[in-house]
Simulated assay, not measured.
Amino acid sequence: MALARCLMRTDAELIVLDEPTSGLDAEGEHRVHTTLRRHAEGRTRLLISHRKSAPRGAELIVTLVGGRIAEQGSHDELMDAGGEYARLFHLQAGGYQDERVR
C-alpha cells in the first residue's frame, strides 16, 4: 500500500521508504527498485534497508552502528574503505557465492 501511495504522488520532493521490498522475491525486488529509481528521478529518496544490494547505486549510503553514523559514501568508496558496510556486504553476498557461477 505504501509503494502504491508513493507511486501515485508525483509532487513529493522527498520519498521515504523503509524496507519496501522485504517480502518480495528477487525479480519483484528488482522491478520495484527500477520503478522507484525512474519515479523518483530529480527528487530525494531515503531508503532504509538491511539488504546491501538495495542502495548500491545510491549517491550517498550511510551505515549506522548502534544507532550512530559509522560511515558514509558511495558503494565503491565504502567497499574500498573496508569498514562495516563492506563487511556486511561481503557477509550477505557470501550466501550467494557459488564457484560454478562466473
Rank of each mutant, 00 (worst) to 15 (best):
Q97Y: 12
R37F: 08
L88Y: 10
T35A: 14
D11H: 05
R51K: 08
H33E: 14
H30N: 04
P55H: 05
A26W: 03
F89R: 00
A93V: 13
C6M: 14
H50W: 09
E84K: 01
P20G: 06
A54V: 14
E71C: 11
C6V: 15
R38E: 15
R5E: 03
L36G: 02
Q72W: 09
L47C: 15
S53I: 14
D98H: 10
L46M: 10
S49V: 10
D18A: 06
R38K: 14
T63Y: 01
K52V: 10
Y85I: 03
G57L: 02
H30R: 10
S53K: 13
A12E: 01
G94Y: 07
G23F: 11
A54D: 15
G82I: 03
A12W: 05
A40I: 05
L60T: 11
T44N: 09
R68A: 15
E84P: 06
L64R: 09
R38Y: 10
H75V: 01
T34L: 06
A26E: 15
R45W: 06
Q92I: 02
Q97C: 01
V32G: 07
G73K: 02
E77F: 01
V16H: 00
G23Q: 11
I69D: 10
I48S: 12
S22I: 01
A70Q: 13
L17F: 08
C6Q: 12
V32Y: 02
M8D: 13
Q72M: 11
V32K: 01
L7T: 00
E13C: 00
